[in-house]
Write a protein that binds this DNA or RNA. Structure first.
Length: 604
RNA sequence: GGCUCCAUAGUUCAAUGGAUAGAAUAGCGGUUUCCUAAACCGUAGAUCCAGGUUCGAUUCCUGGUGGAGCUACCA
């Protein structure tokens, strides 16, 4: 991803230039920028910024310590911001003048858009996520997908990208025919209304039913002496499902009618889940519409000689030159496969939006699929194929192993959301802090906290890594959790409210000369770091960076809050500064959590 | 078999090639006449193995071991 952000006024750049100057003056060489390593000084050491001098030794031809001393001396004399330094091994720790951090803080505090960039590219970035099948309800794996997609969209926006959130609904194919067939055979005309079952769950029930009946058929065929692969292929139920798919592609009225009805049940169900999860989309594509374009593209590719046809009439892409295998694009009976649809969807989207980049949030089990998708589009000479990114995330596993949706061994999304909110309610009632609030207020807070716990638990993990979801741990609201962060926000909010109640003037006054303690300076540094975090998380499409940052910030603030008086501080300047520091921390928490799709409660 | 990814405290997660590998949780021990104790402090505990590159490797390279995924005319 490309990120444009104006960082020219940064102290790092000033120091970098000065160090280049120092080296030039001391050793008479012009060193490249890459050789200048500046990092934040680690807390154990004294100083604000640290220059790593090892890369400079080849020019200085002196020991690390001496090189550091010489550069330190030069900076002390020639750079007004540098007030002192110390050298530890090859590390030159620079100490900045007293006024530096207060000034930095005021700049940050006065900038209401701190951390965010203005839109700098009119062509949007498309983010596809969710991508459900319409044959079963959403589960834990989808939750990770949805949270990642939504959060990545927010993060890209914060970095100045226009974003179009999109969804592709896999509403056609053999999977939905399985549910349809099972409902037709054993459904007794059940509907969400007659059963009071959420539509997606009802359809899912028949998908499971199909699998059960199918397994039974395969079993009896094997008992009859058939080999397993043969039996799996020839089971009458599967044949019937395939017949149904062919009828569907032909436009058979009966089949289409059934298909529409059942899909509508599912959509109504999904809408509820999406709403509860707090995610949404700007545009939704349906494979039942894009697969036709996909088929046309395949025909076109065949005509151009980019693709080839086998004797049985199936159409393939030959990717052996690219180190991959042959890939089927159209079955011998002329029906489309997954790849056909995705080709069509991609082209359709480019025609619709002229996107600058397109992010696909899809599980890592489809790495091969996206590799192939890009290659085929490239072969077909679409220049934008280089701008497709597969945000490949790892599986969510349960402590007892993998989820298996065919066996019904899944954590259902709706159940999980409800459980989290319930747990939040129980915890909160035990603590009794919301006594006196209305039911509506309380429920709103339970929701925020329960979902905050769930979302943070999932988003704090690096997307590309597979993760273990332990229900017991996910409902923990202490430690490195969403509620811990929310709690800190609520505390800050309460503090500021008290300040206002006591008519303390703090919002728009300058605190004058403040000598910051180390703790306060650490907090300011960490707040300042937020914009780097946003930038980096956008570059790497990684919300976990934001999540872990929020935690670090809150941890730091809690220590400050514990050790320092704020409202009781007698020095007016210090009091104002600490209130502003608290308010700023709150703003960053809220902003960061927003990027994760997590709401923060005003009290809890 | 081939390709890809992963391996860090008991457990769940961190660590742009940099200083003494951080947290959380579970364990043990503390803090509340005071701005929300869903908090804070202390204690103990880890880089799969063997080489290599480097001033410096959890990070990069090679080999091994262990695990996951893909390799479907399913999506």
């Amino acid at each position: 991803m490309t990120t444009i952000q104006n960082m020219k006024t940064e102290i790092e750049l000033i120091l970098e230039a000065k160090i280049i100057e120092a080296v030039k003056s001391l050793y008479e060489v012009e060193v490249p920028k890459q050789a200048i390593q500046i990092q934040n000084t680690r807390k154990e050491f004294t100083g604000d910024f640290t220059v790593v001098v090892f890369p400079l030794l080849r020019w200085s031809k002196k020991s690390p310590e001496l090189t550091a001393e010489m550069i330190g001396d030069f900076l002390l004399e020639n750079e007004i911001e540098v007030d002192g330094f110390n050298v530890v091994k090859g590390f030159l720790n620079l100490e900045l003048r007293n006024g530096f951090w207060p000034t930095q803080f005021q700049e940050i505090y006065d900038n209401p858009e701190f951390g965010r960039s203005v839109i700098n590219n009119e062509d949007p970035c498309l983010v596809e996520y969710s991508s459900p099948n319409t044959n079963k309800p959403l589960h834990l794996g989808h939750i990770r997908n949805n949270l990642l997609g939504y959060s990545v969209s927010k993060i890209l926006e914060a970095n100045g990208h226009k974003v179009v959130k999109t969804n592709i609904v896999n509403d056609r194919g053999i999977h939905i025919c399985k549910s349809m067939l099972a409902w037709k055979k054993w459904g007794n005309n059940e509907t969400p209304e007659t059963t009071c079952i959420k539509g997606d769950h009802l359809v899912g029930k028949y998908y499971v039913r199909f699998e059960q009946e199918y397994r039974a058929q395969v079993g009896s065929l094997i008992n009859g002496g058939m080999e397993k692969p043969e039996a799996e292929k020839n089971a009458p139920l599967l044949q019937e499902a395939h017949d149904m798919l062919r009828d569907w592609e032909k436009g058979d009225t009966e089949v289409i009618k059934l298909w529409k009805m059942m899909n509508d049940w599912v959509y109504a169900g999904f809408d509820i889940t999406y709403k509860n999860l707090g995610v949404d989309f700007d545009v939704i594509y349906y494979e039942s519409e894009t697969y036709k374009l996909g088929k046309k593209l395949v025909e076109k590719g065949l005509g151009k000689g980019v693709l080839f046809k086998k004797e049985d009439g199936s159409i393939w892409a030959d990717l052996k030159d690219e180190g991959l295998d042959e890939k089927l694009l159209l079955r011998s009976d002329g029906t489309a496969v997954y790849m056909t649809q995705d080709l069509g969807t991609a082209v359709q989207r480019y025609n619709d939006y002229h996107f600058s980049d397109h992010v696909y949030v899809v599980g890592n089990e489809q790495n091969y699929h996206f590799q192939v998708l890009k290659l085929i589009l490239k072969k077909m000479a679409y220049p934008w194929s280089d701008h497709l990114f597969h945000l490949s995330y790892g599986m969510v596993e349960l402590p007892e192993g993998k989820m298996k949706s065919r066996e019904g061994k899944v954590v259902d999304a709706d159940d999980l959301i409800e459980e989290m909110i319930d747990t939040a309610r129980v915890m909160s009632e035990e603590l009794g802090k919301l006594d006196g609030y209305t039911e509506v207020e309380k429920n709103s807070i339970y929701r925020k906290v329960g979902l905050g716990a769930l979302k943070y638990f999932i988003l704090k993990v690096d997307p590309k890594k597979s993760m273990t979801f332990d229900p017991r741990e996910s409902v923990d609201f202490n430690g490195n959790t969403g509620p811990f962060i929310q709690y800190t926000y609520a505390r800050i909010n309460s503090l500021l409210k008290k300040a206002d109640e006591r008519s303390i003037e703090w919002k728009n006054v300058s605190p004058g000369d403040v000598v910051m303690s180390d703790k306060e300076k650490d907090l300011v540094k960490l707040i300042r770091h937020y914009k780097f975090v946003i930038k980096e998380s956008s570059k790497s499409l990684n919300p976990a960076l934001v999540a872990n940052y929020c935690y670090d910030l809150v941890k730091e603030y809690n220590q400050f809050y514990h050790d320092y008086s704020i409202l009781r501080e007698e020095n007016q300047d210090f009091k104002v500064f600490r209130l502003q520091l608290s308010a700023m921390t709150g703003r960053v928490i809220k902003s960061g959590m927003e990027l994760l799709g997590i709401e923060v409660p005003e009290k809890m």
